[in-house]
Amino acid sequence: MADHASRYDHWAWLYNQTLGPRYGAHKIGPIERVVLPHVPAGGAILDLCCGTGQLAAALQARQFHVTGLDGSADMLRHARDNAPSARFVQGDARHFDLETPFDAVLCTSASLNHMEGPEDLAAVFSSVNRALKAGGIFVFDVNHPAQMARHWHGRPSEGEMQPDFAWAITPQYDPAAGQGAFTVDIFRRANGQRRSRLRALAERLTRARPLRRLRLALLARPGLLHRGWEHNRVVNRVWGHDLDQVSALLAQNGFAPELRSTTGGPVDDGHAAYFFCRKIAETGAQPGNVLAEVSA
């Protein structure tokens, strides 16, 4: 995990301007509907793998006491600016021990796909169990093998062009190996370097959402528009986890898990999956179907 964290250091500034705000705004709605009704007012929430802190800021704005934990020092530097009243800790999601118990632990943006295998996942689940109060909630999302095999084919899936920088994310997955990567290409214009007329035209054309495919096609050919720009590439390895195995590991580590697509319905190969888990109380009582309660 230290290796993954150092790679996030290299593009924390970009994540803070682009994906961090976007993911935070996208996820707070479902979390508010599905998770927060089961957290006491003013309760304690751990944002595990918190990134640049936009989700932590949204939770804090809703009057929860928020702690964020991440392995990247640069990500946390931005997080402290974005949510100055929250507590942030640098640490490993597999091995952490925080003194204050939490009512809920959230781990979003498919962060657990960075875990290499069952042993790493089990370590995360064990640490989360220790961090939760009895009956506490653990919610996380993952990209799963069927979905990754369908969509991760080595073509840019996200990206944008700005006057001084551009970026693209390219995911790829090998089903036979059960692992893949998402590559982040970052292009920055040097001080004093002029933008070509073609580059300026491309920026204007591709800002519109209907032209997303054109934007991604241009980003897949960086030599066309970014010749001479500073180029950095960050390769983040990920693993596809069998969902039945993940459920079994959760049960072994003291959780009663429920599994859904991120759209709210049954899991399919078109979307990521998320787990809604409740820590089983010491009495051994089994929780009810929380997702059914929410959707009823």
Rank of each mutant, 00 (worst) to 15 (best):
R22A: 15
R212K: 14
L98P: 00
R195I: 12
A296N: 09
D269K: 07
H226P: 00
G240H: 02
E230L: 13
L250F: 04
G53K: 10
G136K: 07
A202I: 03
F64R: 08
H153Y: 02
S295Y: 12
D185L: 05
H226E: 04
E203D: 13
G43C: 09
L55G: 10
P257T: 12
F276C: 07
R80A: 15
G270I: 01
D92L: 10
D3W: 07
I31K: 02
V124H: 00
H26Q: 14
N16C: 12
G43F: 10
R197W: 14
I186L: 14
R215P: 06
R199P: 00
M1A: 08
G178Y: 05
C107H: 03
N232K: 12
C277G: 01
F125W: 10
K279D: 04
V66N: 02
I186E: 03
L250T: 06
G71E: 05
A56N: 06
R77M: 08
P222C: 10
A104C: 15
Q54G: 10
H153S: 12
L243H: 02
D141V: 11
F255P: 02
A256P: 00
G91P: 01
G29S: 08
A273F: 05
P118S: 15
D244M: 04
A93E: 00
V128N: 03
A256D: 12
P84N: 09
P266T: 11
T183Y: 02
L218T: 06
H241S: 09
A200E: 14
A176K: 08
L59P: 03
G53C: 13
A217L: 09
V267P: 01
D92Q: 05
L19F: 11
G20L: 08
P210E: 03
I280F: 02
R189S: 12
F64A: 08
F64V: 09
I186F: 08
L291N: 06
R155P: 00
A79F: 06
P84M: 11
R215A: 14
Q147M: 15
H78P: 01
V294I: 15
D164N: 13
G254W: 05
V124G: 01
A202H: 01
T52R: 02
G192D: 04
Q63D: 14
R194E: 15
A296P: 00
A181Y: 08
V267T: 05
Y173V: 11
N143Q: 07
D47I: 14
D268Y: 03
L225M: 03
T183I: 15
W11R: 09
F102G: 00
T170D: 04
P210S: 04
R62M: 13
A58T: 02
T183W: 02
Q63M: 07
G42Q: 06
V142E: 01
W229Q: 02
S157V: 13
A12Q: 04
W239A: 10
V139T: 11
T183M: 07
R215K: 14
Q54T: 12
Q54A: 14
I186S: 03
H226T: 08
D3F: 12
